[in-house]
Amino acid sequence: MSDATLDTIPATKAKPEDGTARPVSFRGGGFAPKPRRWVGLVVFLVLIAIAEWGTRAGWISALTLPKPSDVLQTFQELYASGLLFKHLGPSLSRLAVGAALGVSLGVSVGILIGLFSYIRAGMVPLVAALFPIPKIALLPLFVIWFGIGEGSKYALIAFGTFTPTVVATYGAVDNVDRTLIRMGQSFGLSWFSIVRKIVLPGAMPGILSGLRISLAIAIILLVAAEMLGAEYGIGAYILQAGSLYDLERLFAGVVILSVLGVLVSGAIAIIERRLLGWRT
């Protein structure tokens, strides 16, 4: 009997020599992952402990990696002085506005491309031409168009999140099971009902997966935008620390961005549990 055939056999109970039955775990159980949040925390703590021990022992140069305890002390100083929120507030505002514009427009255009042939024929070549362009390279152009203020930063983040969101969205719409659509048509559902009850729920997993990538790109572009003409912001803070070769402050800024990325990913995970509970 081949391995492929064995994979299709449902879980049964094996009977050892004593006659007692014991359950046999299903080999495909990996497709239903269970939450193990503490594992990720342990990995972070182990890496931090190795970095602390290595820098104190001397086999990691202080010019390469600061001690995590010194970075933590820098966080405490940032919080006590109020500079943490002075830099974090503008960054969150720029990220929220720019990402909201890019994601909402990208999802809308992606759905239209997935549903209408003429829009697909006109927009897919345009998106394919825009997608490979390094968005950071367009920052000087956005500064010329929108000025050195907030407008250029919003535009860069919005444009950077727009194209990957479009690609993920119309790809998710294309991957909806056509059998379900034909079933809805056979039951006499209207076009709008099929889109609302079949296409959008079926495409939502792919759309949310695309949002993870788009929002990560938004954070990267946020830093790039704030390094040009911004007095406050995480990017400006990192640029100032790098120019002074202050590794503790620089790594503190990097850690803030990392935590921001984790929080964004967690927020999307919450949305997935709310919107995609029908998959369980």
Rank of each mutant, 00 (worst) to 15 (best):
P68Y: 02
R120E: 14
R279A: 01
L138W: 08
G149D: 15
V97H: 03
L228M: 10
T179V: 13
R27H: 11
S69Q: 08
R279Q: 15
G206P: 07
T163W: 14
G106L: 07
P140V: 04
G58H: 09
K15P: 00
D70E: 14
G54M: 04
A51G: 05
G110Y: 09
T163R: 05
V107P: 13
A216W: 06
L263I: 10
L130H: 07
S214Y: 02
L126P: 07
L141M: 14
K197G: 00
V167Y: 03
V264F: 13
G266H: 06
A218S: 09
S25T: 07
P201Q: 03
L72H: 00
M227T: 12
I198F: 10
Y170W: 13
L276H: 01
E272C: 02
V262Y: 09
V255R: 00
E150C: 00
R36E: 09
L6Y: 14
G202C: 05
V262W: 09
F85W: 15
A236I: 05
K67Q: 14
P134N: 05
I238E: 04
E52K: 05
I9W: 08
S61M: 03
I119H: 11
K34D: 00
G235T: 09
I157E: 14
K34H: 03
S243P: 00
S93Y: 14
S108Q: 09
P132W: 09
F26N: 06
S193Q: 15
G89F: 07
L101S: 03
E52I: 00
A14W: 12
G210I: 05
F131E: 12
G253L: 09
S190G: 10
G210Y: 03
G54P: 14
A155F: 14
L200G: 05
A99C: 08
S93K: 14
L83R: 15
